[in-house]
Design a protein around this nucleic acid. Structure first.
Lengths: 231, 231, 231, 231
DNA sequence: AATGAATGAGAGTTCATTCAT
DNA sequence: GATGAATGAACTCTCATTCAT
């Protein structure tokens, strides 16, 4: 059976990098938390920077199972739009349990070391790309409930921005309020979009077919519903 | 006679903290950039952390003149809603001229040292509060052009989130695209809100008064206009 | 009127050197205590070492008025032997009021910088010489009450040794007990010496003259008395 | 495999602290003397102060084998009173070989850092206590040769005082003379005490028994002898 | 795989001192 | 006489890393 030393190091490093940042975290601290001696660390990783890359790769590996898929699984409804907020809820939980000390580890690393270590930057870019792609997929799955003109990809980026930006504010104020407010506004935007989409479809339907469409709409109404849900 | 040494140190520190982060910046680097010897730095600041506090205070002092007031002054129209995007444009310029290495210095500090140094965290919190308050003011100045039900304060936080979150993505991808996409979506949301407000007002007006109001509305139409403008 | 700045500096330095030692005392600390800026200090003293020399000279200047003459003045009797213990009592008071943190400033300097700074060592040597000379004088003033064979100078050095050595122990144990015990033993030795001297004189008187001397002795008995007195 | 690095550091530090004092000794100097790099020192000792504690502990560990037991072993006679002077002779040798630059390392530390670093002060206190206890034991082993009324413990403290105080003076004058004079006076006191004790015993014996005791006394005379011996 | 002693460059900071005002 | 900004060497200590075992 292979030892778990490497994992323990990775886990310790991931935790400390998230808590304190990369540069503020000393190798000694990682060794202490991992319960490992320096020789062991350098047996698995050739440098602290290398360890950071591995940590970032680990974040990447865990993005889908721990965040994206889990968000869908934990979502209160099958509605793909709801999945988006389920995902945002996962970040909320991280803020909550850490007393707003921890938010998105990757976002923090992006700002701290993104532009300094190319290998890491590329992984972060990929991480965000996957995140955005998944949200985009959910948005697309919502089909006509969102306005035809809405660029799903750009809007997914916007969603990520709200999440990261909300986290920044909540960490700064040590309160969930800003994050909640930001997400609430995002939800309102979703409602607005859904309403607009229905309105647009109504209009086009009106001009195209007319009253008979009304029957369908009553069904559509239900599907289109998108309302506020407490965390 | 006042010397500029202290300012040179502050400026150098602010720049390096923004470029590399607080922990990755050595005192030696600050001294080199400021063209000052170590003794001088410690004549004015009792520690590196103290210097950080002073830098953060400087950001706070410059927030209004350099960002908020300038955004209003540089705004392409007198429309307060446009001021918001003028402000977002300032951050865009920072990204642009730095090759997406620099975004919002305060956002970066918030994530890197926010939770570690209370004195700094408080200043960051205040910084965001002022930022948000100004945007909220602009939103309120837009009066009925935004929906009555829109919480101006929460929406201002949302605007800040989009900015900070867009910056995170643009720094990670070393491209303005994510930032632009995020801001574009935000603008769409503004348009949506303005449209919704007009719609709501139409409906109530219809029920309340009727045609005479239409005359006013034609003027209002112009005011309500809120369309995309290239950076 | 000349300013007292120089004196304030000297006093501050003397106090801090005594409390913390020479090397542990920073110029900054002296400036703070003296309420003076660095330029002023270097206006009067060319270096920290120079300041030490001046402090040591001050100790030398104050030795007679503040210690030796005061000891005689404060002595409970006119007995010169008692003056010795009056002097030791002054050091006791210093220990007492300082919680055994301060003893003999010069003794401490002797051990810390004596062998390193010749100018200072010479002053310390002179200081001890004057101290010893005074005690020797008192011992000589006791005349035949002390044994003829007792070397007054060497014994005075011994007295100084007991004082300094007692202080060392009391500072180490943060208690007056060791100092008191040492001085008590010294007093016993004095009693022993006085007794021995009387005995010797008795013997020689017996062999030389005889009974008539007894009359004088009854007076001498009183003079010879030398008993323990509480502090 | 145990390396000698730690010991080399301890030895170097002990030597330099004794020669120059704690504060005047730089870590760099210790490293140079020990032939070690800074990282190594901090591998074994967490700080300079910690190193001082270890040095002091080492003094404590070496007190018995290197000073107390050796004093007894090197003593010119089996007479326990002579052991006391054998011990004082060890300090004399230290003064001699160092040109009066070195005396009692612990005494110096007591004055320099005693009251500043509690951990060190406690060790110094214990050091003196053991020293005194051993001398007290020797004094007690002398049995009735010393006066019944003599407090052995207090007198042992007095002996230590004479040693430390003699060292202070010899270091200040860069001459063995003061130390020798102090020890000589102490020896005279011993002789006085022994004589007094014999006298007291004679008196009590006279009053109790009478002439027959004289036979024993001739033997006692030899035992009681306590005379000056050159170093 | 793992240990922990050893490295030495560099960290942040304090130091005594200088000097123009 | 006094100020306090400026200096730069030296300080204690931490850093990421290496390597013999």
């Amino acid at each position: 059976m292979p030892t778990d030393t490497k994992d323990r190091i990775l886990e310790a490093a991931a935790r400390l990098f998230a808590e304190q940042g990369y540069h503020a975290t000393g190798v000694a601290g990682i060794l202490r938390v991992a319960g490992v001696k320096s020789g062991s660390l350098y047996h698995f990783f050739s440098s602290k920077e290398d360890l950071l890359v591995a940590v970032m790769q680990r974040h990447l590996d865990m993005l889908r199972p721990q965040f994206l898929e889990r968000a869908a699984a934990e979502s209160v409804t099958e509605d793909p739009l709801e999945h988006v907020f389920s995902l945002l809820g996962i970040y909320r939980r991280t803020l909550l349990v850490s007393g707003c000390k921890l938010g998105s580890p990757v976002g923090s690393l992006a700002l701290e070391v993104g532009s300094g270590i190319p290998r890491v930057r590329v992984l972060i870019e990929r991480y965000f790309a996957i995140w955005v792609a998944q949200v985009q997929e959910w948005l697309e799955a919502a089909g006509p409930r969102l306005p035809e003109g809405l660029e799903r990809g750009a809007f997914a980026q916007h969603v990520l921005a709200v999440a990261e930006g909300g986290i920044v504010q909540s960490r700064a104020s040590e309160s969930l309020d800003p994050y909640d407010a930001c997400v609430a506004q995002l939800r309102s935007t979703f409602e607005l979009l859904v309403a607009r989409s229905r309105y647009e479809r109504d209009e086009s339907r009106d001009s195209l077919v007319g009253e008979p469409a009304r029957a369908d709409e009553s069904v559509g109404e239900t599907e289109d519903e998108f309302e506020w849900r407490a965390w």
